[in-house]
């Protein structure tokens, strides 16, 4: 099951549970009427349990998601990576056309004009990583491509009339005898601490 199907399934299950509750309660108006005081007496007890249950569930969900946050800890930032500057501008991405397989790439994403989004779609068309491309700021996005093939970058922040056509194709190639040259890659200043990373909870 891919990421899209998992998300939809999760949504549909939760929505179905909610629908079931609403339909059951609406249907109960066909039953003989119950005094409001009586309903409240039982209802408040259920509400107390619901309050506790939902609060604990949401707190647990919060802690469960933290390991999958894309924000890089300082130690991770020091891991070896190919640094690749990406410049977004209306309505193109300036970046290399080829990337090596299984090598950690650290995209240094910025914009020359307005806000853009830098979203990477894998050969199956799934959105695997993204960050914003902002003027005056650099967002660091670490991605390791494990799958060779044809990838597409799409703009994921509305940037004007050409927003929908703002895209860039690149290929990821398997291990070649000589490492693929990285035309745009350059050693970046050591004083900038990359502050982000992308991890995929579905992988």
């Amino acid at each position: 099951m891919d990421a899209a199907e998992k998300l939809l399934l999760m949504f549909f299950i939760l929505a179905a549970v909610a629908m079931f509750v609403f339909v059951t309660v609406a249907w109960s108006t066909r039953l003989p009427e119950q005094e409001q005081a009586e309903v409240q007496h039982r209802g408040y007890a259920i509400r107390g349990r619901w309050f506790l249950g939902i609060t604990l569930f949401l707190l647990a969900a919060f802690f469960a998601t933290i390991p999958f946050f894309p924000y890089l800890a300082a130690a991770e930032a020091l891991l070896p990576a190919e640094k690749v500057p990406v410049i977004a501008q209306q309505f193109v991405f300036i970046m290399p056309d080829h990337f090596p397989l299984n090598r950690r790439i650290l995209f240094e994403v910025t914009s020359r004009d307005v806000n853009h989004g830098f979203g990477i779609y894998n050969p199956e068309g799934q959105l695997i990583a993204q960050t914003q491309a902002m003027p005056d700021y650099v967002n660091y996005l670490a991605v390791t491509f494990h799958q060779p093939g044809h990838y597409t970058v799409r703009c994921l922040e509305y940037c004007g009339v050409g927003h929908a056509i703002m895209q860039k194709d690149f290929t990821v190639e398997g291990a070649s005898p000589t490492p693929a040259p990285m035309p745009m890659s350059q050693p970046s200043g050591t004083n900038t601490v990359p502050s982000s990373n992308a991890s995929n909870p579905f992988e």
């Binding site: 990421a3 899209a4 998300l7 969900a61 998601t65 999958f68 946050f69 894309p70 989004g117 979203g119 799934q126 959105l127 695997i128 990583a129 993204q130 994921l156 922040e157 992308a198 991890s199 995929n200 909870p201 579905f202």
Partner: peptide, 10 residues
């Protein structure tokens, strides 16, 4: 949820 937001944002 931030891990899902990676795939759903915008």
């Amino acid at each position: 949820s931030i891990p899902f937001n990676l795939h759903l944002h915008n």
